[in-house]
Structures are given as structure tokens and as C-alpha cells.
């Protein structure tokens, strides 16, 4: 399976995963509209992150050329954004005040970001703290997944028997929504916070195992022949051939993992509560501060975009061709 189809499959899986709390939301006897807002969190994060990869303007010698190039690069996205805000504005007009418009949201945002790091007890903290604690959960869950998933991927790629032993299990578990694992986490850890981290661990381990393993099997046989002809030791093969050859695949796995983890954390936190952007969205819904939910959607999108850009930059740094 190529990395691209794999990526698509994952996105579909993650989107499905995030859409699931809709069912829970209805069970909690909340308006069905919440299902729509939950789904839009999922769908907004992905396209924003993809568009971010557009090439930046090339340096030109003459100022005029440069200006024109800059305009060409910035104008279309700006127009797109303006159109989006326009549609949003028109939509709020026709919705008759139930949906906050751009101006209202902007004013709320200015107030909100004036003090992002206040703390009035565990249930009332600034948006900064909420984002940071979500990121922390993602970091811990993802980190543990990387520590286990990457070495496991190398082993699966290197040893065919092991791979045929483990592959059926992976194929069985990978399509399962990570949120289905949440109750298991709650049962084992008896606390909400590690349970959310556990969910992140589950959802981010698969892309790393699969991409790393695929990278190992895709190492060009030429390089392995070099290793054989030079009669390199297993350690040298790993450090000089396997690891550098697999690194790009590994980074793709990491990128997919973090992207999925960021999608899932919002949903997981809605279910577990505590401090976190997902919980914050839920809380603001209970307070009927819909403009805050819209702000949260933007914040989640922007954080996801930054994470993706950061990992793309790292991957570029380590690409050798």
C-alpha cells in the first residue's frame, strides 16, 4: 500500500472517529446541532493543513517582479478567505442571530486573547492553557507511541515471519475508531486524563508502525547489496543504510500520527472532560457561547496547521535528494 492511499484511509478513519461523539452527544440529550459542529472541527482541520503546503514566492531581482510575484502568491488565498468570511456573514444574516457573525466573533476573540493564560480553578482556564494541555496529551501519547511503534516497525520490516504474525492483528485493530478504546483506558487507568492520552497513543501508533515497516521493505535492494558486498555488520547496516533510508517514511508516519492525534484529542476530551481544547468547546456549548466555539475551530485549525508545517520542515531537513 502506498503512503498516499494509506494517508487517505487514515484521514477517513480519523474523520469517522471524530464524527462518532455525535452519537454520544445525542445520548447526553443535547441539541442535534452539536453533531454538525463536531463534524466541522474534523473537516476544517484537514483542508487547512493541506493548503498550507503551497510554495512561497521565489526571490526575484527586480522589485516590480517581486511585488507581482508576492501579489500572485498572497492574493488568491486572501480572496478565498474574504469570500469565506462573506459567506459566513450572509449565513448569519439568514440564520437570524442564532449563529454569531464575523464581527461578533472577532470582538469575542479580542476579549478572549487579551488574557489567554488566566486560571480560575480546573474548570475555568484561559484558552492558552486549554490548548497547551491538549498539546501535552498529544505529546505524551504520541511520544510513547513513537517509542514503541518505530522500533516495532523496523522489526516488522526486517523480519518477514514476525510481520506475517503481527500484520493480521494490525489490520484488525487499525480500522477501529480510537475512541472505542477510551472505555478500556478509563477502566484500566481509573482516571480521565491518562485515558485520553491512551486514546492518542492508540490512534498514533498505527501510522508509525506501518510507514516504518513499509520503509524498511522499500529500501532499494541496491543498498542492501552494497551492505552485503561490503559485508557490513548488522549495526552498521542499521545506522548507515536502514535508518537513513527509512527516515523519510518514518517522518511521514510521524506526520500522519500527529495529524490524527490532533483530530482525535478534541473528540476524546469532549468525552473525558478536564482541561483541554476539546473540553473547552464542549463547555462553551453548554454555556451557549457559540462565538467561542467558532474561535476554537479556528484555533484548532491553526494549531494543526502549525504542527503539520513544523513536521514538513523537519522532513525537508532530512531529505537527501
Amino acid at each position: 500500500m502506498s503512503a498516499i492511499t494509506f494517508e487517505k484511509a487514515l484521514e477517513a478513519g480519523a474523520a469517522a472517529a471524530v464524527a462518532e461523539p455525535a452519537v454520544v452527544a445525542v445520548a447526553r440529550s443535547e441539541p442535534a446541532a452539536s453533531a454538525a459542529s463536531t463534524a466541522s472541527v474534523a473537516s476544517s482541520a484537514v483542508p487547512v493543513a493541506r493548503d498550507g503546503g503551497a510554495p512561497s514566492p521565489k526571490p526575484e531581482s527586480r522589485a516590480g517582479e517581486w511585488l507581482r510575484a508576492a501579489a500572485r502568491a498572497t492574493l488568491p488565498p486572501a480572496i478565498g478567505l474574504a469570500v469565506m468570511i462573506g459567506i459566513w456573514y450572509l449565513a448569519t444574516l439568514s440564520a437570524g442571530g442564532s449563529l454569531p457573525g464575523p464581527v461578533q466573533t472577532w470582538e469575542a476573540a479580542v476579549k478572549l486573547f487579551a488574557d489567554p493564560f488566566y486560571s480560575n480553578g480546573p474548570n475555568d482556564q484561559g484558552i492558552g492553557w486549554n490548548v497547551l494541555s491538549s498539546l501535552q496529551r498529544v505529546g505524551i501519547g504520541f511520544g510513547i507511541a513513537a517509542l514503541i511503534g518505530i522500533p516495532l516497525g523496523f522489526l516488522l520490516g526486517r523480519f518477514a515471519t514476525l510481520s506475517s504474525m503481527v500484520n493480521p492483528i494490525i489490520s484488525l485493530l487499525r480500522p477501529v475508531s480510537p475512541l472505542a478504546w477510551l472505555p478500556i483506558g478509563l477502566l484500566v487507568f481509573k482516571k480521565a486524563d491518562p485515558a485520553a492520552t491512551w486514546t492518542i497513543f492508540i490512534c498514533s501508533i498505527w501510522p508509525m508502525i506501518m510507514n516504518t515497516a513499509q520503509g524498511v521493505t522499500r529500501v532499494p535492494s541496491d543498498y542492501m547489496n552494497v551492505a552485503r558486498v561490503l559485508n557490513l555488520s548488522e549495526w552498521k547496516i542499521f545506522t548507515k543504510i536502514l535508518f537513513p533510508a527509512v527516515l523519510p517514511y518514518m517522518l511521514t508516519g510521524i506526520r500522519l500520527s500527529i495529524g490524527t492525534a490532533w483530530l482525535v484529542i478534541v473528540a476524546a476530551e469532549m468525552l473525558t472532560g478536564g482541561v483541554g481544547i476539546g473540553f473547552w468547546v464542549w463547555d462553551e456549548w453548554n454555556n451557549l457561547k457559540v462565538e467561542h466555539i467558532i474561535i476554537a475551530i479556528f484555533v484548532i485549525g491553526i494549531v494543526g496547521l502549525l504542527l503539520e508545517q513544523m513536521l514538513i520542515a523537519i522532513a525537508k531537513r532530512f531529505s537527501y535528494e
Binding site: 541496491d222 547489496n225 552494497v226 558486498v229 559485508n231 557490513l232 552498521k236 548507515k240 537513513p244 533510508a245
Partner: peptide
């Protein structure tokens, strides 16, 4: 099996792209 007394120059050179020329030979 392959042995150090028999060395191969591959049809497509097969240098490791993440090592410099020096490092490729040094290996």
C-alpha cells in the same frame, strides 16, 4: 557469499545518497 576479496562496481554505482563521497568510500 559475498567476500571482501571480491568487490563489485554496480551498474548503477549504488552510492548511499546520505553519505558524502568521502564517507561512502570510508565505509
Amino acid at each position: 557469499g559475498p567476500g571482501p576479496e571480491r568487490e563489485v562496481v554496480f551498474q548503477n554505482h549504488s552510492l548511499l545518497p546520505w553519505l558524502t563521497c568521502f564517507e561512502n568510500v570510508y565505509l
